[in-house]
Write a protein that binds this DNA or RNA. Sequence first.
RNA 1: GGCUCAAUAGCUCAGUCGGUAGAGUAGGGGACUCAUAAGCCCUUGGUCGUCAGUUCAAGUCUGACUUGAGCCA
Length: 545
Amino acid sequence: MNYPAKTPHSFTVTTPLYYVNDIPHIGHAYTTMAADTIARWQRLNRRDVLLVTGTDEHGQKIERTAIAAGVEPQVHCDRIVARFDALWSKLNIQYDRFSRTTAANHQSIVKEFFERVLAQGDIYKGTQQGWYCVSCEEFKEERDLLADNYCPLHPSKQVEWRDESNYFFRLSKYQQQLEALYAECPEFILPLSRRNEVLKFVAQGLQDFSISRVNVDWGIPLPNDPQQTIYVWFDALLGYVTALLDPDAEPTLDNALAHRWPIDLHLIGKDILRFHAVYWPAMLMSAGLPIPDRVFAHGYFTKDGKKISKSEGNAIDPIEFVDRYGAEPLRYYFLKGIEFGQDGDFNETRFVEIVNADFANNLGNLLNRTLSMAKKYCQGRVPNCNPEDISAEHPLKLLGRELGDRVEIAYNNLAFKDACEAILTLAHSSNKYIDDLAPWTLFKQDKHSELAEVLYSALESARLSAYLLSPIVPKISTDIYQQLGLDVDFDLVCGSHGDRSHLDANELPADWARHGEWGILQADRPLGSPRPIFIKLELPNDASG
RNA sequence: GGCUCAAUAGCUCAGUCGGUAGAGUAGGGGACUCAUAAGCCCUUGGUCGUCAGUUCAAGUCUGACUUGAGCCA
């Protein structure tokens, strides 16, 4: 079957389906905050967005973790899923679909997909011998093992010898097609450094890989051999397909792929790049399906320059952190303070410095001082100034008119840091402009039209900054809009469209489609009362570094 | 072990085709007062990891080395 081209108006972005072996940590939060930001950006641009997240729940590791906890695997999974969901709620992540690999409709999708690949002749039975790390859910080469057969990635876990009759996927058959894909779509794998790694890896020659397991009950049985279950990665990647099913749709591949396939963007951490950039497209090629547009692997971060690990005891508990500082500072720090795609460092002092400087000192103070003056000098109304009458050479108008395009390019390239820096440049320029023109002096001199132009252009710059930052810090942006007398709630406008009644109920300004441009505030409209949009954070007394 | 990438101000990073080292933040000083002592202006910080080489000229190109990160199913 040919699937109709998805509408250019839609945008589908995924986070990984997180493995429920353990409770969510800061790394899960990082990927998901980025995905939420992209989803909000696309919604802001009035695209029909589907943000997919979820959990990967099968496999021997889950089975054993559940046994160790003395519960059924499904009970264990449900508990962990609740923890993920609680974190997403705390971080104001508004997903549209939560795809669980233990969902009934997922089983149908996996079986249908498996049969399609089987019919294609790409699945055969073979023997797999070797050392298997249950924690990695992967076979390991003997030369890679530590002393006494410990896994290099899990130094506390010994690998196990396996000699199994398994089903294999003919990955080797797709080597040339994959290489052609990488050549034709140079932006399929980003960033470039990761792409190079994949190219190198594929160039070494691809080997078929085992896609079934014996003696693992916690999984989806093979349609053609129910004694075996489907390998957890083969199963999990298809969770992206299942996620596209409408909730009440019959779970068939045709239904799942009808409207939104192929996915626009898979956001992942660099650890699972191979699965997404090699195995996944090969599986799709075998099934005769189009390939997603883009896989973007972000980096990891350290804490104060040291690798984060439980054994080091330097893990960051996202829940505790949000309770202490709030969700938006955290969202902002991760997206502004770390180059997306590269590794970064998490340092609490730097975190506090960045959010205080940008939100309290720069943007927050800009809004506060300008609103205060408008209250004193303009009766608390938008200063009487028509933006079209402002000279094209006006420094803020000049900056503001090109800012939307710059920020759009940045968001579309996942260059969140660039977007933030460009926006903050407008805020800084506005502060400077106010100091240069000294509206308090203009007021004393009764220069009312000059005064109006200064205050108008500063208020308008704060508004545009809020609009463009809203995918990252929706609540701060909403607060700015409210203080400017604009009744827009960015969570309603750009949050999940799962419940569209919110969007309809929210009466957007008539000129909403132009809010990404400079010159929107209308003269004489009432402004809200100035109050700080951001209270400065303080480090705990014992914080070091 | 093989391969890839990185190293620039206290911190985070930019630096185009080789042409006298930049931003933000932190530190110091100043003038102002609308404002969350915020903002604005000025300013201290750099042998551009090391050593060679090419060149009139190297942060930039070449080689070696050091350190760090990553990939090697």
